[in-house]
Computed example of a mutant assay.
Amino acid sequence: MKGILLVNLGSPDSPEPKDVKKYLGEFLMDERVIDVPLWARNLLVKGIILNTRPKASAAAYKKIWWEEGSPLIVISKRLQEKIQKQVETPVALAMRYGSMTIKKSMQELVDKGVSEILLFPLYPQFAMATTETILVLAEEIQKQYFPQVKLDSVKAFYNKPDYIKVLSNSIKKHLEGKDYDHLLFSYHGVPERHIKKRDITKSHCKIDGSCCITPSKAHEFCYRHQCLEVTRLVAKHLQLEDNSYSSSFQSRLGFDPWLQPYTDRTIERLGKEGIKNMAIVTPAFVSDCLETLEEIAMEGQEIFHEVGGKDFTTIPCLNDDEEFVDLLSNWINNWIN
């Protein structure tokens, strides 16, 4: 029997500092998140970050925490439940980090008689720190604990026409009746070296003004290209006017160069340039989480207002939107059949 394993990022068990510290420790010690030698990662994460950041991160989580729990977990469960109603095979949910582990969810599927699993990372774009780390861990777990199970996976779907249509429709719906001067596509940031590390040609990615728009095999694993392509395709679908939209990258950490332009500085610049009504969408995430609800909707809005901006519209992620549920269910049913 076939089964589906949806995998999202994860969340602390609570917004308390001890749980946030445990979660951050697992997340930041992942060699595909902070890709430096183990001794340096230990020094940075255990010696510095985990002694300074958990309290501030816990305060941020408390701002966005729902009665039912972590927004990302609650939304992901809603998505799972809605998809389960549209497909006949078992659908499980796991998180890459935290207590809802991939191993537990694989075991849940195996206990239901599943012998072939479709691993579905809930990320439109490929990145080392998202899709790749899920695929690598899932394969390790499958080989060690479930050797009898066949594992398949969903590739990045950033440029699939039906996904672009659903994303565009969601943006259009949430902007209906609103006047806005600029639409900002904000994507989760990654260090520039991640892009170059995953350049399968070893020469194409220069992170300049041309490599992401020049055809290349490197694009299959290039997060930057895939983000910019989402912006281009959505803008084309919605027939957005030139200069009425742009892309940026958020959530940088440390001192190494990360993908630019940075979202916080872009929001500030746009406000200073006279943009009064701004909308922002975050297509690197399918579920609203700390980065969208606190960093963008709260901190971003504060920056915009400080420089003279007036209306700041945050467009929700696709979450458990009915069109998105239908889309994922159709893809899953096609795989099953």
Rank of each mutant, 00 (worst) to 15 (best):
I336L: 10
L259G: 05
R265V: 05
Q107M: 05
F126E: 00
K150E: 10
D19M: 01
V33A: 11
M29S: 14
E88F: 10
C222I: 00
V190I: 09
K85E: 14
D181T: 01
M298W: 12
V154A: 14
Q142C: 12
K217G: 10
F304M: 09
D321H: 14
S248I: 00
V87Y: 12
A279S: 06
Y262I: 00
L328P: 01
A138K: 08
V74D: 06
A297K: 13
Y223S: 07
K276C: 02
K82E: 11
A59G: 12
R232F: 01
Y158Q: 01
C317N: 14
K202D: 08
D264N: 15
M278E: 09
I336C: 12
P17C: 07
V234K: 09
K77F: 02
D264G: 12
E108H: 15
R252C: 01
W39H: 14
L238C: 06
K206F: 03
D288Q: 07
S14P: 05
A92N: 12
L293T: 06
T201F: 01
F285G: 11
V20Q: 11
F126A: 02
L9Q: 05
R252G: 03
E229P: 02
L93F: 04
T314L: 07
D35M: 08
E291H: 05
T101P: 01
K165Y: 07
E306G: 11
I213Y: 15
L240C: 08
L118K: 03
I303F: 09
E273M: 04
I207N: 11
P90W: 04
L5T: 05
S168R: 01
G209E: 13
I275Q: 13
F312T: 04
E322A: 13
I171L: 01
K150Q: 13
L5S: 12
V230L: 10
V307E: 11
K236A: 12
L233H: 08
I315T: 05
N42P: 06
H194P: 00
I102V: 10
G98K: 01
E291A: 07
G271K: 05
T101K: 09
S210I: 10
K63Q: 12
L259A: 04
C227H: 00
K2G: 04
E306D: 14
Q125C: 03
A40Y: 14
N333D: 09
E140P: 07
F304R: 14
N42R: 15
E192A: 10
Y187M: 00
L137F: 06
K272S: 10
F285E: 09
L50E: 05
D321R: 11
L293G: 08
L43W: 13
G10L: 00
E306I: 03
L293I: 04
A94V: 03
H225V: 02
